[in-house]
Nucleic acid binder design. Structure first.
Lengths: 216, 216
DNA sequence: CACACAATAGGGCAGATGACGTATTGGATA
DNA sequence: TATCCAATACGTCATCTGCCCTATTGTGTG
């Protein structure tokens, strides 16, 4: 089976180097290349018939972490392997949080890169041994992550939090209304307001976002 | 440089099989073998001039997790790779907590095992791609470690998992269909089947349950 | 060779949901 | 005091969702 991939890197020379590495393998086709995240997103708008993205992290306009978040939100079926020169803990953790399926270093051998791509498409995860070690350390010591606090202040009212909690249990409007001794109309209105505040458009997104911000 | 390793497994036949696999590589010497943890600890008492241990998990007397804890406590310089047939989340997480430097499955190719040993001694971590993926999921969703027991009964197909992943992003049927190049009818059918298997009745419940069981 | 089952696809229907309106009340705050 | 806003409530409408039905194709297993 032929694999369609994209390469995103702000250094066009490096894009070329990666293409070169992959040129040995005829089961991989580089369908897109982009110099930053928003360029990639534009291309995906036109056609998202793509299997995997090799993504740099440090890029202008839209960096690799942000881009990964966007792509995974909209096209979760597309696998993403971070391919970067840096391997500091923060990048790794943020990339994982953003939904990356692997994390490799640019100096990687062509064969290992090829293996990593295949393994990732096969439902595994590609990782440098040094990166793997860092993820193990992060798992052992979860406290080392809790540093980054939320920047944007989301303030939901007490009632809205209550509604959100009920929502998170998978209850319907009418049941929530019944539970909180409210009219269904009121519950709907609360949920409308919650959506506006969280800037989401569905129950699932609301619950997800609320969880990520420790609101519930 | 010659590497001195130990193999700990309650199945002497499997010890032999691993030795066989490693016999191709003349930079590795199997110094000890043991049928359980305490046997290994005794041997280490006499001489702990050892680089790395390949450790089974399920063993009588002293299991692999406990043994790893002991060894890492007393001889932190000795690397330990879990080498086991099972890869359930609880084992992985406990092994990591105990201080394991890698986690491989017994069916691994000789070359990859050799690589894993070398990488680990080189300051990295050895991991199967499937294990790597599990560690990533654990990092993303740390509360999903408890509920492993009742997972046996839940078996979703690969396609169903894909659909669930899309669901979890809050996408609608039509968008999911578009992303996976399926008809909306098919997506609906998949979701129907998922609901039956998970015994739930809404998107949120499905995503919740899937998360708790580390299916996504 | 059956048989089971995953993956695909479509039809139909009742009820739920999301997004828009409007409106009243009471408490907080400028 | 005047204004803001949370909390309450209702109406409408297009769309989505959950649940029922049937059906074909391919793969794998006993």
């Amino acid at each position: 089976m032929n694999v369609k991939i994209a390469i995103v890197d702000d250094n066009s020379f490096l894009i070329h180097a990666i293409k070169e590495k992959l040129s040995f393998f005829d089961d991989i086709t580089v369908k897109y290349t982009a110099l930053n995240g928003s360029e990639l997103l534009q291309q995906l708008e036109e056609s998202h018939n793509l299997d995997l993205i090799l993504m740099d992290i440090e890029m202008p306009v839209l960096n690799g972490i942000e881009t990964t978040q966007f792509v995974k939100q909209k096209y979760p079926q597309i696998k993403i392997i971070m391919l970067t020169a840096f391997d500091n803990d923060e990048n790794i953790f943020n990339a994982i949080k953003a939904g990356a399926d692997g994390y490799l270093l640019k100096e990687i051998d062509p064969e290992l890169l090829h293996n990593g791509i295949r393994e990732t498409l096969n439902g595994g995860a590609a990782m440098n041994p040094s990166i793997a070690l860092k993820t193990l350390k992060l798992l052992r010591n979860p406290n080392s992550i809790e540093n980054e606090r939320d920047k944007e202040e989301i303030s939901l009212s007490k009632r809205e939090i209550e509604v959100l909690e009920q929502l998170s249990k998978g209850l319907s409007y009418t049941v929530i209304a019944d539970n909180l001794f409210l009219s269904p109309s009121t519950v709907r209105k609360h949920i409308e307001n919650i959506y506006k505040k969280l800037q989401v458009h569905s129950k699932i997104e609301a619950v997800q976002k609320a969880r990520n911000h420790n609101l519930i």
